[in-house]
């Protein structure tokens, strides 16, 4: 179980997270939606301790920390519980596709090179990139890079995978291949928190949807509850705006 209690984070005077509490059950897929700047990325980064929150409690699986007395050791333990998939893929540019996956396994998890290699080969086959093993990230398309990013996260065998808008940097025609990979992960019972702007995807794949705005969780519930019967004005407004934008895009395309 992932349990976050009253998480706060400020950059200088700018309070970005104003007391976030959230529970995610094992195997659950949680989608986080919300307007730009509402603190979604910051929240994920705090879970992965890429940013250190100012206060609050985070429990992931058997690791429980109080931010107030976070030690280096605890940071490490907590970080090992999750893996991140980034919006801009963030593959290691100086490593081949395969090395991107094996290097963390060998350096961090102390697996043998052979074991790491076979894990990597397996996962690359699953995401359909066996033929790109020895390519460098720069020579791959965005969709291919993001699939490697996902394979790298899965290879770590974390308790949960955190996705930060995994498709929003992609050309529309490449979004599908990445969402497909995420969907198959969801089916395999992986615990996931996915920040996304793809509402149809959230509706389809997520067990639970969280709407964030201005540093708060405004509303959460099943996809059904959030998308069809939002209770909060702020949520309604956000969803309305989205559909208006969508219509505009459609109109533009028609004209």
């Amino acid at each position: 179980m992932i349990s976050v209690q009253n998480l706060h984070k400020s950059y200088k005077d700018n309070e970005v997270l104003k007391g976030i509490s959230l529970t995610v059950e094992k195997g659950q897929v949680v989608a986080i939606i919300g307007p730009s700047g509402s603190g979604k990325s910051t929240f994920l980064r705090c879970l992965n301790v890429l940013e250190q929150a100012d206060k609050g409690q985070i429990t992931i699986d058997d690791v429980a920390v109080d931010i107030a007395n976070l030690t280096n050791k605890k940071t490490e333990l907590l970080r090992h519980k999750t893996a991140m998939v980034f919006q801009n893929y963030s593959l290691f540019k100086n490593k081949t596709v395969k090395e991107n996956i094996t290097m963390p396994l060998v350096t961090v998890q102390k697996k043998s090179q052979r074991e790491a290699d076979s894990i990597a080969e397996n996962l690359l086959a699953q995401v359909g990139l066996s033929d790109k093993e020895n390519f460098y990230p720069n020579s791959l398309s965005g969709g291919q890079q993001q699939r490697v990013g996902i394979a790298r996260a899965v290879a770590l065998n974390p308790y949960a995978i955190l996705f930060d808008e995994p498709t929003s940097a992609l050309d529309p025609e490449l979004v599908g291949e990445v969402l497909q990979v995420i969907q198959s992960l969801a089916l395999s019972n992986m615990t996931m928190i996915v920040v996304t702007h793809e509402m149809s995807f959230a509706r389809q794949v997520a067990d639970h949807v969280v709407f964030m705005a201005e540093g708060y969780i405004v509303e959460q519930g099943t996809p059904e509850e959030i998308f069809n019967n939002p209770k909060q004005e702020r949520t309604k407004k956000f969803l309305q705006q989205l559909s208006v934008e969508k219509q505009l895009v459609v109109k533009e395309l028609v004209i």
Binding site: R79, H80, A83, F86, S90, F92, K93, N94, V108, L156
Partner: peptide, 30 residues
């Protein structure tokens, strides 16, 4: 070197020193 490279290293559990040695430094050297 892009800051996301350090993020990626830390997110997979590498220490800062490991990150410097395996990823950041080789990219900077180029």
């Amino acid at each position: 070197v892009e800051s996301n490279q350090m993020d990626a290293c830390l997110s997979v559990g590498m220490t800062k020193l490991q990150a410097m040695r395996k990823v950041i430094f080789p990219q900077a050297i180029r």
